[in-house]
Design a protein around this nucleic acid. Structure first.
Lengths: 229, 229, 229, 229
DNA sequence: TATGAATGAGATTTCATTCAT
DNA sequence: GATGAATGAAATCTCATTCAT
């Protein structure tokens, strides 16, 4: 069940930025950071697809031309943010298992890790998600990374099956569905402002997610099959 | 659990449609239909956001100018499609209950209904989904309709709780998560071409979704708590 | 010596204009013609490289956006002009030989044909010439067409050599030099406004060119070798 | 016939060079030289019109900003190169006459001198040629210097006529044509990489040029007029 | 002197929308 | 109703040039 924390990571390798980084000076790094921060803000506020370079530049307090000293396109900036995020997300994926938490707690921790990362990285995640809908290279990379996450989840499901849990379910499709749930739930609540007229509570949301996940995987034949209808 | 079949429906009432609808001659209706079909095709192929009016007109074999005899904007056309779809989806929501199927089968039927509708209406659903990301009025409507579906699902969960199932979970947040799963899973598999390197099988996909749903809701305290760790 | 009349022709095959020509209406053809005329004017006045799309559009009395209904780029418009020109130039190359003019007169006629074509097509020829300096695809095509002309001229020189004229000279390099002379002389006088402080007279210019050409080719060993110093 | 060696020289006096030239430290001179070398390279490789200041700076291994410590514009740098070249070319113009070569040899030597200078100074000559097409001040200066060369050539033709050669031809227009030939032939072979599919040989090229030149000028009425047709 | 960074001013290009026939 | 043509209004991107260190 590990790795749950990065189902949507989506860094896309950049062509060949003239490696401005080579001789970057303090001022340069500041400006770059200003553009990244501005992009996060604007992507979170207006969405990636709606964002214009001029909006980002304005939010960064720089000229549009300056933008092109750092990135070739809006997509390249998003890629840079995605890479930053991927590095962080990957490093976080294993954390829950450091302290030998009980299965359910570890799972909840993993879900919570993803959730918190999403919350913190709202801008880039919205951007990545939207970009993946429109631009081929983003979609491909997104599918690739989803693939990694799903493989990890599916592995955990197989392990559970070896212990007699959830017999007969397709591990990969189940992983795909759970991953879709996690990703989209976070998008709705953190990216789109939540469901209409539903008061919100972080902890209860995480409880709901984690419970579904646990119950969906860790059930045994007889136990559950208590007379439907 | 009913109503599952339409969690994402998103028709938005258009301001000026009456005028249009009124004056339809036979020729006019044919052209209109050509535009709708073309839009479904193009939305499914290129996505709503990438679609240009000229693409739709080309696919319809009509001129761009003709488009404006029927719709004011691309968004208006999407709204029309969404309305068509909403009518159908609503009428389908109750079907599973006609024949008093067993609980699990009814649920699987409802999921399958949503899935099949999505498959058939790929174009408009991709369009609705994408439009909701970008344009305020679509997002609001989308949330509204999600709200209806969630309310229905939450009602079913509460009913289950009254029968002693899934004690303690938040019905609305759980409904939100399950709805997110269903919607996004369909989007990925039917709208985006599926997960990378995962062979696909309709029936197994529906099994996976339905099983998660059933297990996530119809569990009892003791039964499930079989030693974690 | 034939074919002299087209050493610089430079049509470049166009990628794939959406064949707007398909349904062109009278108005459309007029606008296209307006853009071509405007381009000739502007290329002749400002040069191809200096010409902006907006200049051409202004000269044509149309909007810039309208330009893009007819051509994808400035280069495409030039190509269209070049094709038009090539058709004309090719058809003119043989004319001098219709009436069995004497050798010298025929040659002068051929030179004059090139000259007159250049004068009439100033705009496109300046454009072609300039474009060939800058853009690879134009240069390649230009070299190709020069090659055709040179081959023809070299053939005429070889024929002269068979008659005992100009023994020992390299036919191809001589053809290249004569062709360069013709082309550049026309460019200077017709494209750049002529030499500084030199009064101009068409007929005398053609006499000078034709005489050089005749004397450079139709000389015999002994005759010329009258002791210089 | 002297002076043939510099028909296209095109130095343009720069307004503000004195200021610059004055303050040269050793380091400064080195940097300046680096920019000049870089410009020659880049002009020869990409052409003057395609060359960006940043290309030149990159080739020089200096920053763009540094460029502006030496020149105000790309044109100013070209002017400086042209002046350098003019000084050299002028000093070379008289060389062929040192040793009292026979007329034909002297002429061939002069042509060869121009050719070799062009080869050595490819970058600036391409630059001058291209700039003259586009920028008024370059064109004017270019015409002026062509004018000088043509005057010298025309003088030689008049001298030949006084000796009974080439009666009746217009000395100035003939000079213009020969000069055009020389200049353009060099541009094609040395600046553009030569004619398509023609193998190249320096000596034969010079032979061809010199022969045309000699035969075009040093012919006598009767001698040459060996019955055409 | 040298240079990283910043930017104004343009030029190209796209596209939804309008108009005349 | 239908459509070829026309266009305003952006948005992207480039590049010469300036500035602060």
């Amino acid at each position: 069940m590990t790795g749950t924390s990065a189902p949507v990571v989506l860094p896309v390798p950049s062509r060949s930025l003239p490696t401005r980084t080579a001789k970057a000076t303090r001022k340069g790094r500041q400006t770059d950071e200003a553009f990244r921060d501005a992009a996060r803000l604007v992507f979170a506020r207006d969405g990636y697809l709606n964002a214009k370079i001029s909006d980002i530049a304005a939010a960064a307090g720089r000229s549009v031309a300056s933008f092109y000293n750092y990135y070739d396109t809006k997509a390249d900036l998003l890629i840079a943010l995605a890479e930053e995020f991927h590095a962080e997300a990957t490093s976080m994926a294993v954390l829950p298992y450091r302290a030998g938490l009980a299965r359910d707690e570890a799972l909840r921790e993993a879900v919570a890790g993803f959730w918190r990362t999403y919350a913190k990285r709202r801008g880039e995640l919205i951007g990545i998600f939207q970009a993946a809908m429109i631009e081929g290279r983003f979609r491909d990379r997104w599918l690739e990374l989803r693939g990694e996450a799903i493989a990890r989840i599916a592995g955990a499901i197989r392990a559970a099956q070896a212990d007699g849990y959830c017999p007969g379910v397709d591990p990969v499709l189940t992983a795909s569905a759970l991953s879709a749930m996690l990703e989209h739930f976070c998008y709705i609540w953190l990216g789109q402002g939540g469901e209409k007229d539903v008061p919100f509570d972080d902890e209860r949301a995480l409880d709901a997610l984690a419970t579904i996940w646990v119950k969906a995987v860790y059930w045994r034949e007889a136990a559950m099959d208590g007379r439907a209808r």
